[in-house]
Design a protein around this nucleic acid. Structure first.
Ligand SMILES: [Mn+2]
Ligand SMILES: [Mn+2]
Ligand SMILES: [Zn+2]
Ligand SMILES: [Zn+2]
Lengths: 137, 137
DNA sequence: TTAAACTTTGCAATAGTGTTGCACTAACTT
DNA sequence: AAGTTAGTGCAACACTATTGCAAAGTTTAA
């Protein structure tokens, strides 16, 4: 994805496309998997952890990325679909490969609708499947 | 649950029922919800974090408790059912209340069976629902 | 065009969780 | 009773996440 497209994208979500943000977004979208703060930090030596952290938070607040707690000990971030508002209808299963540590959005697998007992409300959900991915098998 | 029962329980799972372990187990089972290491630590001032930690690991290794990563930042632990071997058939949904922070096993809601794309294996899963519990509503 | 106002970034510090090595003590074995 | 094994407490450490503050950059409005 080229920088121009990315800038448009961020602007369309009311986020000013600074150099850092563009870089973070580009890295996330190009990687094709979910990345942690530490993953991102490694990929560009020079940039401060806190800057990346704040870029991610800004993205998350504006439905540009969503976070996944895959149980690996660090939260990962993945780009949202175009029209995502991070609500129940946008939720999907995430797959965590216990061999390579890759976490992938399974956008083709929406989180199944569960009927909760009386009295519980349902705001959000995480459904993480652990196993071995095709690459590692 | 009285200490005698707990000791029987632990022995039946090949874990020597020390004073600390019995205490940890009792606290977990009496609380009726999932507790974190920090939660447990608080409940008994005197006992070392690492001792509780190791008790929990031992329990987990022996299918006495299972852990839940509810996204709150600390892993929680809950007692397993009698015949649990912590495999796919024992997996159930967990509910995390965003108001009170309580995490509850929903043993009545098994994790739905998902058909993964070709090439993925399925070893384990976590399905966490976030919302508001009846107490807090 | 320049000064004021606001936003973003870098740095340093901090809190919290999880984890381990090591020495001491308790329990079990012979 | 002496030797061996298992459990506990303490201290240290690694790592993630998060924040205050000051410097740098950008935008706005005189
Ligand atoms: Mn995703
Ligand atoms: Mn449970
Ligand atoms: Zn893999
Ligand atoms: Zn609640």
């Amino acid at each position: 994805m080229d920088n121009n497209e990315i800038e448009k994208k961020l602007e369309s979500k009311n986020v000013k496309p600074t150099a850092m943000r563009t870089l973070v977004y580009k890295t996330l979208t190009d990687s094709g998997k979910a990345l942690s703060l530490a993953d991102l930090e490694q990929r560009f030596e020079k940039v401060e952890r806190s800057t990346i952290f704040r870029a991610l938070k800004t993205f998350e607040d504006n439905f540009i990325v969503h976070s996944v707690d895959d149980g690996s000990g660090s939260v990962k971030y993945a780009v949202c679909d175009e029209d995502c508002t991070c609500n129940i209808h946008d939720l999907h299963v995430h797959f965590y490969c216990t061999r390579c540590g890759r976490t992938r959005c399974m956008k083709e697998l929406p989180i199944p609708n569960i009927k909760l007992p009386e009295g519980y409300t349902y705001d959000n959900a995480q459904f993480i499947i652990n196993g071995v991915c095709p690459r590692c098998d």
